[in-house]
Amino acid sequence: MRLLHTSDWHFGRSFHGVGMLDAQRRFVDHLLETVSSRGIDVVLIAGDVYDRALPGVDAVTLFSETLSRIREAGAAVILSSGNHDSASRLGFGSEILARGGVHLRTRLDQLAVPVELELGAATLAVYGIPYLEPRLTAEELGSSVPSHAAVTRAALDRVRTDLEARRSQGRVHSLVMAHTFASGGLTSDSERDLSIGGVGAVPLDLFDGLDYVALGHLHGRQQLSHTVRYSGSPLPYSFSEAGHEKGGFILEFAGDGLASVEPVNWPAARRLAVLKGTLEELLASPDHAWAEEAYCQITLTDDDRPAKAMERLRQRFADTLVLSFEPASPREKAAMSYSRRIAEARNDLELCCGFLDHVRSREASDAERALLRDTLSGAAAAEVSA
């Protein structure tokens, strides 16, 4: 039996103000091609189907169409909710959907109710642990400590109790889906913090003894142990993911258990470019030609902030979405506190020019100084005549 481990689709998300629904539709096409060409029996989605608890109509429509296409391709779906999803909304109609091959795990009372998949003489029990907000779930799970580690441990205790009972009746292998931050995972800028200061990290040894753990939440595909993996998001959702290969994992289960785990890659519609240098270097260098068709994050290192920098950059890199400034050799005046510069200004012209330099990190040009001088002279003359 082949299963496809995915997560963090984030339907409805934008990328620095650019809508991503078209890119997400192309991802779905890649997903369906994998399902058909590789003979996938079950698609696992480990949380964050949507980007927010109240998704837009277009995002809901895309997800509905995706489920229909997966089922038409012959694969079942097992889905658990993430921290971006509304568990109650996502889990609506779960009993009815299960009859159509779409199995939702969004409630605590479903923790020990696996989806059973036949492996010949054995069974694969797939458990779905939705995102567990400690403050809201600790009491119901019987945990006296409202922490991510404590509630995850309590949830896994329920899973293991059920698993032991099933194994007493026959040969059963285990797969657990969970949406959490496991210790050792590498984060990206596009994930929402589950807690402050890293206290939300769940110890990796909580998953010991399980045949495979399909994690969601972190957007970089990664292996934490032989049996614990993050599939990562299918698309990059921050420039920190510029170097990521996006996709999922194909799992092969047989009667003896987990036989193989293989990564599968899906190309993004647009590449991401993270560029740094002076404005003239970036505009002239042939090394950056590939970035002309990419979404760009650019850091300019000019000592003086160039005029109309974004406008000039977009003449070459049309999709520059993020622009920042990091002078290679900060000027002495820029390092000086603004209050000190005000105190040391010898006249009104220096005061005005100093303010202009402070707010835009570039000294006034000769033309600007002349305009300010004329304006100040005019104001002084008007005050005298009054």
Rank of each mutant, 00 (worst) to 15 (best):
T187F: 12
L175N: 02
E164W: 06
G243T: 10
Q222S: 11
R229A: 14
A138Y: 01
E245H: 13
G197C: 06
I129Y: 02
E133F: 05
V213P: 10
L136M: 14
G247C: 07
S147P: 08
Y212T: 10
L156C: 13
L218R: 01
L136Y: 06
R171H: 14
H219G: 09
T161I: 13
P234V: 14
E133K: 04
T161D: 14
G209P: 05
A149I: 04
G216E: 10
G209K: 00
H217T: 01
L141G: 02
L235H: 02
L224I: 03
G243R: 11
G142V: 00
G184E: 05
R166H: 08
G247M: 12
G220M: 04
L141S: 01
L136D: 11
Y230N: 13
F239P: 07
L175G: 00
E252W: 08
S168H: 14
G232E: 02
S190N: 01
G209S: 05
E140D: 13
V228D: 03
R192H: 14
P203Q: 02
I250F: 13
F249L: 15
V145F: 11
Q169L: 15
A214D: 03
D189V: 04
H148F: 09
L141W: 01
R171V: 15
V145K: 12
F239I: 13
A178K: 02
E252V: 03
T161F: 08
D205H: 15
V199P: 12
V151L: 09
F207T: 03
D193H: 10
V159L: 07
F207S: 08
G216P: 10
L194K: 06
L163M: 00
G184M: 03
H217K: 00
V176F: 07
R229F: 06
T137N: 02
T227N: 09
G248K: 03
I196K: 01
V145G: 10
G209A: 09
A138P: 12
P234F: 12
E140P: 04
T180K: 02
F181S: 04
L210A: 12
R153S: 11
V145R: 15
L215T: 00
A165W: 11
E191R: 04
R158L: 11
H173A: 08
K246R: 15
S174W: 01
P130W: 02
P234E: 10
D211T: 03
R166C: 08
P234K: 09
V228P: 00
L132K: 03
L156V: 07
V228K: 09
V172M: 12
S195Q: 07
H226T: 15
S183N: 08
S188H: 07
S225G: 13
Y237K: 01
